[in-house]
Design a protein around this nucleic acid. Structure first.
Lengths: 186, 186
DNA sequence: TTGCCAACCGGAACATTGCTCCGTATATTC
DNA sequence: GAATATACGGAGCAATGTTCCGGTTGGCAA
């Protein structure tokens, strides 16, 4: 594992910065050429560093996902109850998602390509949500049969769909409904 | 309003049939050329009859949406309770959505273009859902503050996201959670 | 410091796809 | 059967993803 050349490292960082900026304004579907231009590099360079668009997306968002994951235990410790912690953490997750224009649609259009990002979500966030759900279940606040995967996906899908839904629609209401559904004991 | 020429009518029907077939196999994002080829017409013809892809999609799915809308009152009359009718009708809606590969992603990628389809959903389905929700509310089965639009969108988004989610994920579970959330009284 | 080579870069070139435009063909009418 | 309006087909343009290779440069050895 030889060290990369200095120009390679420089270009990689330039690409990450450029991609982060362009993703915010143009969404994750932004043309490759635009990202390359923003970074001041050629087409070849972007494909050499990030063979697929998903590789670039993963690299850009990885630390944000990590931050969300790491906030879980703290919320569980500080919140009034496990269910309150669940609400807080879901809020955090939603905050992350709503700024990612087109991410959901992109992941749906090209599921194979985004397997890496999908895996990142599952590896980092699913255990955190599972812990919080477990605590809430033990406290008797929610039903026993809520699979964390189902809750996580549904929240992600609702956020993805909320984009550009007009001002009279609030994704958080539907997500609140979902969480209330977890507490419906029948 | 002069009558269309015979060949024009024939081609329009050929296009609708071809589009319906191609949408099932390749999704609503299928290349225009493929649909034109399947119908045995040229590029110009498809764009003359259906200026935008959404026009074609709307034409293909309109009667399916109508059928779903018209089933609402019957379900409300025959089901055990308004909430049971709600569940039945949502099942119908989900059945419709899960076979429309890529529809959700397409509507998200190009919200303006699919305004027509979106309007169709709102015009035809929203009143039906509103009626059912109203009956359930009057029966005291659900909360009073559930906006039909929010429920409809959330269901659509979850279905859209469920596509290609792997065998260990069931969109209907999350949707059941959503409906249970409607009955959580607090 | 200088020279060499592997690593890296840039962008031209190709493939796919959405969409338009116009010369040609045909249905309809008289 | 001729005239006319309508419709058709597909070539062509633009945007974008992706690959490939000749040229360039950073890092190391002498």
């Amino acid at each position: 594992m030889a060290a990369k050349r200095a120009d390679a490292r420089r270009n990689e960082k330039a690409l990450l910065d450029a991609a982060a900026a362009v993703f915010v304004t143009d969404g994750v579907d932004a043309p490759v050429r635009r990202i390359a231009a923003e970074a001041g590099v050629g087409m070849g360079t972007i494909y050499r560093h990030f063979p697929t668009r998903a590789d670039l997306v993963v690299a850009v968002y990885r630390h944000q996902i990590d931050a969300c994951a790491e906030a879980g235990p703290a919320l569980l410790a500080s919140a009034e109850s496990p269910f309150a912690a669940l609400r807080d953490w879901v809020d955090l997750f939603v905050d992350f998602l709503v700024t990612k224009h087109g991410l959901g649609a992109a992941m749906r259009t090209d599921p194979e390509g985004f397997a890496g990002l999908h895996g990142l979500f599952l590896d980092r966030l699913l255990p955190v949500l599972a812990d919080i759900l477990g605590a809430a279940r033990e406290a008797g606040e929610i039903r026993a049969d809520i699979p964390p995967l189902h809750l996580l996906r549904a929240i992600g899908d609702i956020c993805a769909g909320a984009e550009g839904a007009g001002p009279d629609y609030d994704a958080r209401f539907a997500i609140g409904l979902l969480l209330d559904g977890c507490r419906y004991l029948g």
